[in-house]
Design a protein around this nucleic acid. Structure first.
Lengths: 210, 210
DNA sequence: TAGATTGTTAATCGATTAACAATC
DNA sequence: TAGATTGTTAATCGATTAACAATC
C-alpha cells in the first residue's frame, strides 16, 4: 500500500541517486530492474531502497522489479524536478560560476535567472547565459521579480550581511556554501553545503588509512 | 573524563563548524565561551555541542566555559588540519577551479599539488598556483609521487573510468563531486558530495513554503 | 505451480535530547 | 558559599536492517 508519510530527509537525499542510476539504465535500454541489482550497484541495502521508493508511491512488480521509465517519471515528479523555479545566485566567483554552469540543475527545475557580484570586472558580463549584475541591484531585482530562492556562494566574511539583504528582499530559501551558520528569522530556510564537513571526513580517513 | 570512543561521522561533520565559530570569536578578542552561547548562535543543542567537543578530549570549566584558543588548537589537531597531505585534482572545469582556489583547504592541510584535465586549452596553464597537466600524465605522476588522495570533479559520464585509473595508480581516498556512485575495490574510500541531494532538499522546501 | 521479488511489520541500532550530579 | 556550567548517564527518537507474508 502506498505510504502517506512524508519522506524523511535521508530518503530525500538518496532519491536523486536512484534517479540518476535509473537514467543510466534507460540509456542502456534496460526496462526493468530489481532492488537487489540496484543494491549491489549502489551499495545501499535493498530494503532501504524499497522503502525509499515506497515513499514516492511507485510500486514494483513481485518477481520482476521496477519499471525503469515509470520510475524515472515518478521520481522526477516526486522530487519536483519538473516544476521550474527561478532563483538568483550571489557571488559569481569560481564556485558560483561552477554552479551556474552545472547542467544537472537545468534538468532539476532550478533556474538561475541572474547572478550578482561586487567585482566590477564581472558586472555586465554573463556566464553560461546568466547575466551578472552589481550586488547593489540584487534587492530591487529580487523584489520586482518576486524571487524566493537564492544560492549564496560568497566568502564567509560577507555571507551574513548578504543573507540579511536577501531576506529583506523576500528570499525565503537559501542554499549556502559559505562555511558559516547564518542567522535567519523565522520562516526562512537555509540548506548548507559545508565543504569543510566533508573535508573533515576525508582527513579522518587519511589518518586511518595511511 | 575523556571519552575514548572514536567520534561518529555526524559529530565529525559538526566539528569544523565549531572550529570556524571559535576562530571568529578569537578575532573578536573573546577568550572564553559557554556552550549555551554557542548553542544559540549555531542553533545546535548545547548538550550535543558538549558531547561533540568531548570526543576531542578537550574539557570546559564549569561556570566558565571553553577556552577559545585552546579549543581552536585542539580542534585543528583532532581534525588533522595541522598535518599536510598532498592530493591531486582531476577535472579542472569550473567546479575544479573553484576548489583549487578555495582558501580554507590550505588551512585544513589538504594540498592540491597538481590538477589534470583533457582540455588542451587548460593543459600547461596553472590556476591558483596549481599546474594543470594532461589527464594522460595523471597515472605516472600519482605513482611517482605516491599520492593517495584525489578530488574528482568531472562529468558523470567519465567519472567511473577516471576513478578506475586513479585506483590503479594507487589512490586510496577519493572525494567525488560526480553525481554517480563509483564502483571501487576493497580498501578504497569514496566521500561523495552530491549536489543533487542538496537540491532535492531545496526543491522540497520550495514546494512546502511557496 | 514454484520461486523470485515485492511491501510491510517488527527488531535493532545509533544519534539526539533530557535529566542531573559534579565542580569551579 | 551559591549558582552557573560542565560531563555523563538515562530516555527518547528516528533511521536502518531483518524477518516474513503477499503476489505475480
Amino acid at each position: 500500500m502506498k505510504q502517506i508519510k512524508t519522506a524523511p530527509v535521508p530518503t530525500l537525499k538518496r532519491l536523486p541517486i536512484y534517479l540518476h542510476y535509473f537514467q543510466q539504465l534507460k540509456k542502456k535500454g534496460r526496462d526493468v530492474v530489481s532492488t537487489s541489482h540496484l543494491a549491489e550497484m549502489l551499495r545501499i541495502d535493498p530494503t532501504q531502497i524499497r522503502k525509499d521508493l515506497g515513499y514516492t508511491g511507485i510500486m514494483g512488480k513481485p518477481r520482476v522489479g521496477f519499471d525503469v521509465n515509470r520510475t524515472i517519471t515518478v521520481l522526477e515528479e516526486f522530487l519536483g524536478f519538473r516544476n521550474h523555479t527561478d532563483a538568483v545566485l550571489v557571488g559569481a566567483g569560481n564556485l558560483g560560476r561552477a554552479i551556474m554552469g552545472y547542467m544537472p540543475f537545468v534538468d532539476s527545475g532550478l533556474k538561475i535567472i541572474a547572478a550578482f557580484d561586487n567585482d566590477p570586472a564581472l558586472v555586465g558580463t554573463e556566464w553560461s547565459g546568466i547575466p551578472i549584475f552589481a550586488v547593489e541591484r540584487m534587492k530591487n531585482l529580487v523584489e520586482r521579480m518576486k524571487i524566493r530562492v537564492a544560492i549564496l556562494t560568497v566568502p564567509a566574511s560577507v555571507a551574513q550581511a548578504l543573507c540579511d539583504e536577501m531576506v529583506e528582499a523576500g528570499i525565503r530559501i537559501i542554499w549556502s556554501f559559505a562555511p558559516v551558520r547564518l542567522t535567519i528569522p523565522e520562516g526562512v530556510f537555509v540548506e548548507n553545503t559545508q565543504l569543510s564537513s566533508h573535508l573533515a571526513v576525508i582527513k579522518r580517513k587519511i589518518e586511518e588509512l595511511i
